[in-house]
Simulated assay, not measured.
Amino acid sequence: MITYSKKGLRVAEAYYDEPAIQSGADVLRCLNYAQPIHGGNSQAFHTIHIDLCRTPEEIFAEMNSTTRNDSRRAEREGVTCEAQSQPGDAWLNEFFAFFEEFAAAKGLPSPNRDRITGMRDAGILDLSRALDADGNVLVWHCQYGAQARIRLLHSASLFRHTEDKERIRLISRANRFLHYRDMVRFRESGFAIYDFGGWYAGQDDEEKLRINKFKESFGGQVVRVFNSDRGLTMKGVLAVYARQALDRLRGQE
């Protein structure tokens, strides 16, 4: 469990059904719980779980042929993977700089540095990256682990910064290879589930459907969990009510 600031609110964040301590925060956020939290604003959320309680060979065999072939080719091409389960400031700052460049190119918001640093300080953050044969970083992954599960939080690459189609394909292969190496590493660290961090349950958003197809290429099972927010102070209650109103408005669009 961590605490961090977001838009003037102090947020306490808990994961995967862990006991939630309600102190010193405006909002209690419970993510990836099996059931909705009583008294909170709860939203169903779909994701893909990969069973890590198998051999690396079994995990690899469940992936489709494209993902297996791309992973093998990336390794032959000299792609290497590095990781830190307790990343220092240098690695954290390198990740932030890379992700902010990626986010700007894709029109995404910058990462919440306070939240991610809080995960690091709580000992639950993991960073990994794939490098080409010349040592250039191609892909970063950011994950957090709790309750024997580890969840992908961010994946970033800069393929939009090049028009070299072969370079773009290399980045794609490196990303698949890094996911597989992450899974093997997490299995060796005692995690039972690799959580891909989301799966789009709709039918209209073509980009999200393409992301679904990528995640499904690794095998696994689509599951439904719940994310819930509960106000703990008057400011927190008002913020949760505002979020509920916004969710209803979006649902009507």
Rank of each mutant, 00 (worst) to 15 (best):
R54E: 10
P109R: 03
I50A: 02
A104M: 06
S65G: 06
I50T: 00
T67L: 03
A90L: 12
T47Y: 07
F60T: 02
R73Y: 09
E82L: 13
N64A: 05
S71A: 15
F99W: 05
Q86V: 08
N69H: 13
P111Y: 12
F60S: 02
A44L: 09
E57V: 01
S71R: 08
E82H: 14
E57S: 07
F102E: 05
K106S: 12
D51P: 04
L108Y: 13
D51Y: 02
R113H: 10
T55I: 05
R72M: 06
A103H: 06
D70C: 11
V79L: 01
F96H: 09
R54G: 04
I59W: 08
D89Y: 06
P87E: 06
C53K: 14
F102M: 10
W91C: 03
A61N: 11
T67F: 06
S110L: 00
P111N: 13
S110H: 07
V79D: 01
F96R: 08
N64G: 04
A74R: 02
Q86D: 10
N112Y: 08
H46I: 00
F45W: 15
T67C: 12
L52W: 07
C81Q: 03
E57P: 00
T80Q: 04
V79P: 00
C53S: 14
E100W: 01
T55G: 11
F96A: 11
M63Y: 00
F60K: 07
D70H: 14
N64H: 07
A44V: 10
G107R: 03
R68F: 01
R73L: 12
P87K: 02
G107L: 04
N93L: 11
V79C: 02
N64K: 11
N93T: 09
E75S: 12
R73G: 00
C53T: 14
G78L: 07
E77K: 12
S85K: 10
C53H: 09
N112A: 11
I50L: 09
S71G: 07
A74P: 01
D89M: 12
F102C: 12
F60W: 10
L92A: 11
E101W: 02
F96Y: 15
E57W: 00
R73Q: 09
A105T: 11
C81F: 14
R54V: 04
F96G: 08
S110G: 05
R72N: 09
L92W: 11
T67Q: 07
F60I: 02
C53P: 01
E77V: 00
E100Y: 01
T47F: 09
V79N: 00
D51K: 04
P56C: 04
D51W: 01
F60C: 02
F45S: 12
E101I: 10
E94W: 01
S85C: 11
G107D: 01
A103T: 10
A83N: 08
Q86T: 10
P109H: 04
D51A: 05
R54H: 12
K106A: 15
E82N: 08
D51Q: 08
W91T: 06
P109F: 02
